[in-house]
Amino acid sequence: MMKNKSIKKVTKHFSDFSKEEEWLQSMLHKGWILKSYDSEDVDDCQYVFEPLNNEELQHVIYKIDFREFNKKEEFEEYKEIFQESGWTLLSKNKWYSKHIFYTTSANAQRDIFSDQSSYRDREKRKMSSSLMQAAIYLIGFIIFLVLYRIFERSAFGGVGIFSLFFSFKYLVDYYKHRKTLKSLL
């Protein structure tokens, strides 16, 4: 199978939105522009880059927001607000919670947030999501532990350990975003 050399796929996990934005900017300076990404909610995020062909695109600015939507209309309205401000959204649909924006406009505001409270709100939304995920996986761990004790099947124990791992992973994410939130206060 022949691999397309004009595309670069990179899989990474970030717990800090600022560091992720910096990394995207560094990839741009290395000659790679972000074209798409897969949501990071379950595991690491896969970024798809293409070579930078247009001189104008060297001045792209990336910014990230974290927001969950229940309705497609809410997502479309969100997208439209940012498009009117000169930002392009790379999220494919409302199921994404991490939304990466970029702008090429010199006239666009250099940031997607107008004040510090918006940054704090983003961190609070991410903390809440991480804590919810940790709780769900912890409950899963308890359920599988009980099933393992009742039925003495190693498969239940294995899935339980897997659930416990993800619970810790999301707790670590929670505390990293909590630390970032405290630095914004």
Rank of each mutant, 00 (worst) to 15 (best):
K126T: 08
E73L: 09
T103Y: 00
F165G: 06
N4I: 10
F49T: 00
D16R: 07
Y119V: 07
C45Y: 02
D65A: 04
L34Q: 01
H99W: 02
F141V: 01
H59T: 12
Y174E: 01
L145H: 12
F101P: 01
K8C: 07
M2Y: 15
L57S: 15
H177V: 04
S36F: 04
F14R: 01
K98G: 05
D65E: 06
D65C: 02
F144D: 04
D115Y: 03
K98D: 04
F17D: 08
L138M: 14
F166T: 03
A155P: 03
M2I: 13
E84V: 10
I139H: 06
K94A: 11
F113K: 12
H99P: 00
H59L: 11
V172H: 15
I142C: 06
N54L: 10
L90S: 01
L131N: 05
N93H: 07
L89C: 03
S36K: 09
I64W: 02
L90D: 01
I33E: 11
E55S: 11
G140T: 03
L181F: 08
Y148M: 05
E68W: 09
G157H: 04
I81C: 12
D43G: 09
G31S: 03
Q109V: 10
T88N: 13
K3V: 15
K182G: 02
K79D: 09
S163L: 04
S18A: 15
Q116A: 09
F113P: 00
K35W: 05
E84C: 15
S85Y: 09
Y62V: 01
M2T: 13
F69G: 00
V48L: 10
E20I: 04
Y102L: 05
L147H: 04
K94F: 10
K19C: 10
T103I: 02
N93L: 05
V48A: 07
R149D: 14
Q109W: 11
D173K: 04
I142P: 00
S129Y: 13
S39M: 07
V48M: 10
L28V: 02
M27V: 03
F165E: 06
Y170I: 05
